[in-house]
Simulated assay, not measured.
Amino acid sequence: MKPRALVLSGYGINCERETAHTLRLAGAEAEIVHFSELLYGEKHLRDYHLLCFPGGFLDGDHLGAAQAAAHRLRHARVVGSGERLLDQILEFIEAGKLVIGICNGFQLLVKLGLLPALGGRYGERRVSLTYNDSGRFEDRWVWLRVNPDSPCVFTRGLSGLLYFPVRHGEGKFVAQDEDVLRELFRKGQIVLQYAHPQTGRPTQEYPFNPNGSVEAVAGICDPTGRIFGLMPHPEAFNHFTNHPRWTREQLPPETPGLKLFKNAVAYLRETLLS
């Protein structure tokens, strides 16, 4: 039985097709669903196992990246039932299902307070993503160091350095204070960090850290490891020919981007579909 994945679309999202394609390659039954289909009760999250917030430019990034969308999700009620859409998402999480936010989707998760959910408290905004230090949109490939001690479901079995593209104007990770950062590190919730390709270590050096993220943070998870947000685009490296040097390097047939989604599918089969 294939786990069912809901890939959101609409209001400026523009990466839903390649994300759904990658999920299908990974073994999921992926369906692209417009925000309005949830708001009008045509679709319900209870019928899915994985929720994906893809990348894009939600509402044109007005009020800050994903801020307007976070306001909509926080207050919108399903037509007919009056149920808050945010309550659907919280029930989805409590049922042990998976959530991933990529780029603009990551921004949405932190604006909603679904990440980092320190102490299991969802809804508190403790971190954010703001304008790149470079003052411009960054579109490049970056190296990422994986935290092997993270509880993140999506990165299980991945180690060393990953290579994914980024494309964002507001990707600088910042935390409320030093205590938040210390707790994130202590609990292994820092999943990915921008790394220098020669040393393999987290770096603040531009362009290897493309946005100036504090502590080079590129991706985080909640304490359960089931909610994952990252600025790089794993779905954009679902086949070895996506790599910018695929004609000049010997690359494995299974990319780390595809492996990341295969981990999610395997987890769901083991826990919810077995």
Rank of each mutant, 00 (worst) to 15 (best):
T224V: 07
L230F: 12
Y163V: 05
R140Q: 15
F228L: 12
D177L: 05
V153G: 00
R167F: 13
T247A: 14
A218G: 08
R201T: 14
I220E: 00
L158H: 03
L162K: 01
R145S: 10
H239P: 05
M231K: 00
V146I: 10
F185R: 13
Q250R: 14
L192M: 01
H168D: 11
R226P: 03
E254H: 02
V191R: 00
S213A: 03
R156D: 13
V146F: 04
N242W: 13
K187E: 15
P232S: 10
R245M: 14
R136Y: 14
R186D: 10
P253W: 11
S150C: 01
E183P: 06
V180S: 08
R226F: 08
R201K: 15
G171C: 04
R167Y: 15
C152L: 09
E183W: 06
A236Y: 15
G229S: 09
M231N: 00
T199E: 09
L258V: 09
V217E: 04
P197V: 07
S159M: 08
R156P: 12
P256D: 09
G160T: 09
R136C: 13
P202H: 03
P207S: 10
L258T: 02
I227S: 00
R145A: 06
Q193W: 04
A216N: 06
F185V: 03
G212C: 03
R145K: 13
H243A: 11
P151K: 01
Q204W: 10
P165M: 05
E138F: 07
Q204D: 15
R245T: 11
T155N: 01
E183L: 09
T155S: 09
F237Q: 04
V180R: 03
F173C: 05
A236I: 12
G257S: 04
P252K: 04
T247D: 15
Q176V: 09
T255Q: 08
L162H: 00
R201F: 11
N238W: 14
P256M: 04
L230Q: 12
T255K: 01
L258W: 02
P234L: 08
G135V: 08
R182E: 15
P202Q: 02
T255G: 03
E178L: 06
L192P: 06
F208I: 04
P210Y: 13
G169E: 07
L251K: 01
P234T: 06
V214S: 11
L181M: 14
P223C: 06
T155P: 07
A218Y: 01
F154M: 03
T199N: 07
G169S: 08
W141C: 06
L184Q: 00
Q198F: 12
Q176T: 11
